[in-house]
Amino acid sequence: MDNLRNRLFELADDKYKKFHSNLCPNTENIIGVRLPQLREIAKEITKGDWRGFLSTSKEDYYEEVLINGLVIAYAKCDVDERLNYIKDFVPKIYNWAICDTFCNTLKFVNKNKEAVWDFIQPYLKSSKEFEIRFAVVIILNYYITEDYIDIVLETLDKVRHNGYYVKMAVAWAISICFVKFEEKTMLYLKNNNLDDFTYNKSLQKICESLRVDKKTKALIKSMKR
């Protein structure tokens, strides 16, 4: 662990540290190492005793927390073991960058849809902002598909939390639903239980998409509450 921390400080980039700190709240403990380098370190760790690493790893710095999450995502293990590690890791998520990077690295979800869908359900009802965001970002990364679109829209409509990062994640997910399944999502937008902020942010994100034509964007803008 001391060698890892020394390596992280050797890789530190002060300009990136300042940039990322401004972009992402709650990063007072950031060293300033770029994500591709963190991914490489995590992959190296998974080639050795990664279980031992996770059992003794330190989490004083942003990068150390993120590396732990990446090791869990990259490690070779069965579904149940990985889900147990994920369960332990989720409470450690304290900003959107850790959440989103961790979620979009969990590629095992693609081959274990049913098990992971069941796994994330309790998080959708959590009182903690980043636990809910974790579940929503898992959904937007892996479940906006033909098989799941109906239940995804139904699920997103039931998310209730005042946290900014929950509302933004739901809006982001709905915008992806629209891009992939415009007709179904349009019907949903005309009849939903979203709060005004999340609803309007959903429309905004749809209009920001390069995959939505000008005519459709004009219609979407006219639907603002």
Rank of each mutant, 00 (worst) to 15 (best):
K87R: 13
D88V: 12
D88H: 07
F89H: 11
F89K: 13
F89S: 12
V90G: 14
P91G: 02
K92S: 14
K92F: 12
K92R: 15
I93Q: 00
Y94E: 13
Y94F: 14
Y94Q: 14
N95R: 12
N95P: 15
N95C: 15
N95L: 15
N95V: 15
W96V: 12
W96N: 11
W96K: 10
A97Y: 11
A97S: 13
I98V: 15
I98S: 07
C99H: 01
C99M: 08
C99P: 06
D100N: 12
D100S: 11
T101E: 13
T101W: 08
T101K: 07
F102D: 14
F102C: 13
F102W: 10
F102V: 13
F102Y: 12
F102R: 11
C103K: 01
N104V: 12
N104S: 14
N104K: 15
N104I: 12
N104E: 13
T105S: 12
T105N: 10
T105P: 02
L106K: 03
L106M: 12
K107I: 09
K107C: 05
K107P: 01
K107H: 08
K107N: 10
K107G: 10
F108G: 10
V109Q: 03
N110H: 09
N110Q: 09
K111G: 08
N112H: 06
K113S: 08
K113W: 01
K113F: 02
E114M: 05
E114S: 04
E114P: 01
E114D: 07
E114L: 05
E114C: 02
E114Y: 02
A115Q: 07
A115T: 02
V116H: 00
V116D: 00
W117F: 09
D118L: 08
D118G: 03
D118M: 03
D118H: 01
F119R: 04
F119I: 04
F119H: 06
I120K: 04
I120E: 08
I120R: 04
I120N: 08
I120D: 07
Q121I: 05
Q121C: 02
Q121W: 00
P122N: 07
P122Y: 02
Y123P: 03
Y123H: 06
Y123A: 03
Y123F: 09
Y123S: 05
Y123Q: 03
L124D: 08
L124C: 08
K125L: 06
K125G: 04
S126T: 03
S126R: 03
